[in-house]
Design a binder for these strands. Structure first.
Length: 568
RNA sequence: GUCCCCGUAGUUCAACGGAUAGAACGAGGGUUUCCUAAACCUUAAAUGUGGGUUCGAUUCCCGCCGGGGACACCA
């Protein structure tokens, strides 16, 4: 189904051609209803290019514009804007069609791509903590949106399951492991033995040497060490799965760093053979002398001691994703500190001749109330489990206050959806690059741009149907009489314009803001227009608007990975 | 030193070159015989700074100030 934006833009293009003018400008929703529903700046752009009067050009375009029943005759306003006011009947007609469209008016992508999206990436033998929220939640939302738009999405969890830290973990395992503690809380015990070994190594050369030896043995395939490593991986994966279950996150594949291990020598060989890499100070490096910003920043793909590092792994990962997974696009979601690294990796890929679309999608940090990186009182990272448990507990206690009558069986599910939804939404409703301050009170607030506010708007729509005890009436006619009715309808039609925009610059917050505004608009309608007490045909029309608002809210939130409940 | 990101009401966040910079919390004033007041209406309050490009700049470019981050063998 075409969006209004698309239809107007197409008509505008026709008008420009008819007026003998080149294509220019764009059609956007207006900020102020005084200016109609949509506007275009085409005349302003052309005026600049051609050094002509913008209002005269606007008149020329308007004269050539055939509204064709879509909108009222366009108006020229201000400096030379052309404003379009859709015919209310057309809005009603399109809104009605949304009822039978399971895409809710969202057009599929014109050129579907196979996209490998890499997000989350926790490390084995370390707890998932608050720092993993953004990459995980952001990546998941982008994957959901891309998939809904018709892309072929492969969600890959690039787990940190290989590296020098395993020397210490294995030494710790052999010398310090408490089996009972491991059974109780595996990750905590792995962290303990790692930390204690690390501390000992800082002051004791012998510990350092032993750890190195354990690492060498692991890399050489020593059965005992490989066995220990394998157990660490298994225990960690179990922990990750538990967190993903609570968060509602799903991965298609989980290719850890170890997966690429045996490909690393050939990667370096290839880079050396093709001349992209050279030996410098004993290490194998790729230089980017022709790129000023990178000229003095080589990418090391083999260390002086012959070992490989994460750059090597990431080059191998690019190979795998393109050659084996047949990716047209590779999206990697991580914090901003890794920008240089991926700039180098993607540059290497381009030099190797890969034509795929490479995108490094970065994000800011989550801060504590003190505006520093969020930590516990003792200065540790806040474990994800602890944080998610607290979210649900807090949601539960708010629920007890606000709606004590809710059936006990429902309370737990509702508290989960509110608590987890609040944490996710707090993240997704903000521009991804900004650092944001984590605040329980704000994210769980019932007013404002929060998950509970949106979830409650959904609940209100559902309660109308529950109260009336009826389904959506079969009569299919929509009369948009009150301004509030028209506003809701138009907002519903714009879902199809909002969802694709999320991928322009990887901004789920555009969708979040849209949903917030839709909920506002709906609440305005809800106050102004009684539904169940209204006479026909208004009653049916309003029921339809409620039903569609419910669907768009539910679907929109689902694209953000947030669940709704029927009551709260 | 070089490079990247950020700087918007008292506070926390929006605004993909467009018209009068939007919200929320906090502060002030209102709304409930009515579908969930977990809501709605309403008042006051902001673009760090100096230039530039533009019909138009929070947005793009240059300088400065402030905060964060990255820059050769950790990931």
């Amino acid at each position: 189904m075409e969006t209004f934006q698309f239809l107007l833009a197409r008509e505008l293009a026709r008008a420009l051609a008819a007026a003998d003018l080149p294509l220019a400008g764009e059609v956007t929703p207006t900020a102020d209803p005084r200016f109609g529903d949509y506007q275009t700046n085409a005349a302003l752009i052309l005026a600049k290019q051609r050094k002509e009067n913008p209002r005269t050009l606007a008149e020329r375009i308007v004269a050539a514009f055939d509204p064709d029943g879509l909108c009222e005759p366009p108006q020229v306003a201000g400096a030379g804007f052309i404003n379009f006011k859709l015919r209310t009947q057309i809005v009603a007609h399109k809104t009605l069609r949304l009822l039978d469209d399971d895409r809710l008016g969202v057009p599929p992508a014109v050129t579907p791509k196979r996209i490998v999206i890499d997000f989350g990436s926790p490390n084995v033998a370390k707890p998932m903590h608050v720092g993993h929220i953004r990459s995980t939640v952001l990546g998941d939302a982008l994957a959901r949106v891309a998939q809904f738009l018709g892309h072929d999405v492969v969600r890959d969890n690039h787990i940190g399951d290989w590296g020098t830290q395993f020397g210490m973990v294995i030494r710790g395992w052999k010398k310090l492991l408490n089996r009972e503690a491991l059974a109780q809380d595996p990750i905590a015990e792995l962290v303990r033995i790692y930390k204690e070994t690390n501390q000992a190594a800082a002051v004791d050369e012998k510990v350092r040497e032993e750890s190195r030896q354990e690492l060498v043995k692991l890399q050489a395939g020593d059965p005992e060490n490989v066995g220990i490593w394998q157990q660490c991986v298994t225990l960690s994966l179990r922990e990750f799965e538990a967190a993903y279950k609570i968060l509602g996150i799903h991965y298609d594949i989980q290719r850890g760093e170890s997966f690429y291990n045996d490909r690393l020598p050939s990667v370096v060989e290839r880079l050396l053979h093709s001349g992209l890499a050279e030996i410098s100070e004993g290490a194998v490096c790729v230089f980017f002398r022709d790129i000023p910003d990178l000229a003095d920043k080589p990418c090391i793909v083999r260390k002086r001691d012959g070992g490989y590092n994460y750059a090597t792994t990431d080059v191998a990962t690019v190979d795998y994703r393109i050659k084996d997974l047949k990716a047209d696009a590779v999206w990697i979601v991580t914090g901003a500190p890794q920008q240089l690294h991926f700039q180098q990796i993607f540059e290497i890929a381009r030099r190797e001749g890969y034509a795929a679309e490479f995108r490094h999608i970065t994000h800011g940090s989550i801060l504590g109330e003190d505006r520093k990186l969020m930590k516990t009182r003792s200065g540790e990272n806040v474990p994800l489990r602890v944080l998610l448990d607290e979210a649900v507990t807090r949601a539960r206690s708010i629920l007890e206050q606000k709606n004590p009558e809710l059936a006990e069986a429902e309370k737990e599910a509702v508290a989960r959806s509110i608590g987890i939804g609040a944490v996710k939404y707090a993240d997704l409703s903000q521009y991804r690059m900004t650092d944001y301050v984590f605040s329980w009170d704000r994210m769980l607030a019932l007013q404002g741009n929060t998950a509970p506010y949106l979830q409650n708007a959904y609940v209100r729509t559902r309660s109308i149907f529950r109260k009336s005890g009826e389904e959506l009436p079969p009569a299919r006619a929509l009369a948009l009489i009150e301004p509030a009715e028209r506003q809701v309808a138009l907002a519903l039609c714009q879902f199809g314009e909002t969802v694709p925009a999320v991928l322009n610059d990887f901004r789920p917050n555009l969708l979040a803001n849209y949903l917030f505004e839709l909920a506002n608009t709906f609440h305005g309608f809800y106050e102004a227009c009684p539904v169940l007490k209204a006479d026909e045909p208004a009653r049916t029309s309003r029921l339809i608007l409620c039903e569609l608002t419910a669907r768009v809210l539910r679907h929109g939130l689902e694209l953000l990975g947030i669940a709704v409940t029927e009551r709260m």
